[in-house]
Amino acid sequence: MSADTTIVDPGTTADAPSEPVPRRRGRTTLLIATAAVLGLVAGTCTGFLVQAHRAPTKLPSLSQPVVTQAKGPGPDPLSAAQDHRVKTDGDLRKLLITRPKGTREAHWTGSDGWMDMTEYADSYKKPANAFPDLINNEFRRAAVAGWEQGGTTTVEIRLVQFRQEESLKADEYADNEYFWAEKEAGTRSWSLPGTGDGMAYVHTRPETKPGYLPMYSAEAHAWRGDIAMEIWIYGTRPIAKEKIMDLAKRQVGRL
């Protein structure tokens, strides 16, 4: 690769947040929750008023017929293909799409395709702030694959897994990535089929720096279960929608 076509590491150029960003649908959730509470209070008060004017109702006998247990074998357990936990608790690297022929493996793909919390935090602009956020978000592990193509294009794919003992952190993580992707000027976006709210983005305005070629980028984000998917493409030429969509669809199909 020549000096004038230096490719910037996707992990270090991503404008990742150093502080948690409020979820975009959080206000709607709050309004629904408030309405539900008010409805419950009103319904309870009405129930007390109605019950106060009713005659006592005779209680049923405590003796109830015994329900016999159904005979025959129980339901069959899920197969490995049907049980999502079997796939995601194993080797996440096997869920990454394979590197295309004619490309070179990237040097930032972590230790044998894995990224621990420290390595992942280092991919942010402010690792010291990102590290405690990852702890609070119940980060578990990340599998990564990447390649270089033609000396002018780089691709990185990460599958980030969360413990999710308190809440759906993978969903929250993807929401955060949508927020930052949409903030960039000159951005076009499309929904990813089969993902619910997954999105793909192409940034039409390149990053420029004196002495370097313009750097164009595209990205895709989605989540499934306890895994958040992120894909980054960087190149010295504009990136086509078909390229980021094809990578995202193939990767989602393996989750």
Rank of each mutant, 00 (worst) to 15 (best):
L255Y: 11
D197K: 10
R254M: 13
A36N: 05
P73V: 06
R158P: 04
G151L: 04
K209V: 07
P22E: 10
R24G: 08
G11H: 02
T195H: 03
F48E: 12
M215R: 11
V37F: 14
K101G: 15
Q251Y: 07
G47A: 14
P65N: 08
L192H: 04
W190M: 10
A36D: 05
L95E: 00
A128G: 07
D226S: 01
M229G: 04
Y201I: 00
L62Y: 07
P193K: 08
E119C: 03
T98I: 08
A35W: 01
T57H: 11
P206H: 03
G72K: 05
P206G: 02
F131C: 00
D76I: 02
T28Y: 06
E166P: 02
M215S: 10
I233S: 11
P17L: 05
T109Q: 14
Q149H: 08
P65S: 08
G150K: 02
I233P: 15
T44S: 07
A185H: 13
Y201R: 00
Y124S: 14
L31F: 03
E165Y: 01
G72M: 07
T154I: 13
T28I: 13
W232C: 02
W232E: 09
T88L: 06
P77H: 01
G196Y: 06
P56E: 12
G43S: 05
S167D: 12
Y212N: 13
R104E: 15
D175P: 09
A220F: 11
R85V: 02
A80Y: 01
W223R: 10
Y120A: 02
E219R: 12
Q149S: 15
A3E: 15
I135C: 00
K249G: 01
S189F: 04
E242W: 00
A240V: 09
M215P: 00
E148A: 14
W114S: 12
T118N: 07
P77D: 00
L95R: 01
L159R: 15
M199E: 11
A145W: 03
K241G: 01
E105K: 13
K71S: 15
P20M: 02
E230I: 13
P22C: 06
R250H: 03
S123R: 13
Q149M: 07
E105H: 05
Y216M: 08
V8L: 10
G211R: 07
D175T: 07
L40E: 06
P22N: 05
R237E: 15
T118V: 10
F179V: 12
P17V: 11
P56G: 08
F162V: 06
A200E: 10
V202I: 04
G194P: 12
G11F: 01
L255W: 13
D4H: 12
R163S: 06
H53F: 12
L40K: 02
P127L: 01
L255D: 03
C45D: 04
P56D: 13
L247V: 15
M245S: 12
H107P: 11
S63G: 04
T103M: 04
E19R: 10
T98Q: 14
I135S: 09
H221N: 12
S79E: 01
Q251P: 14
V21N: 05
A121Q: 08
L62W: 04
K87P: 10
D175Y: 06
S217W: 03
G225R: 02
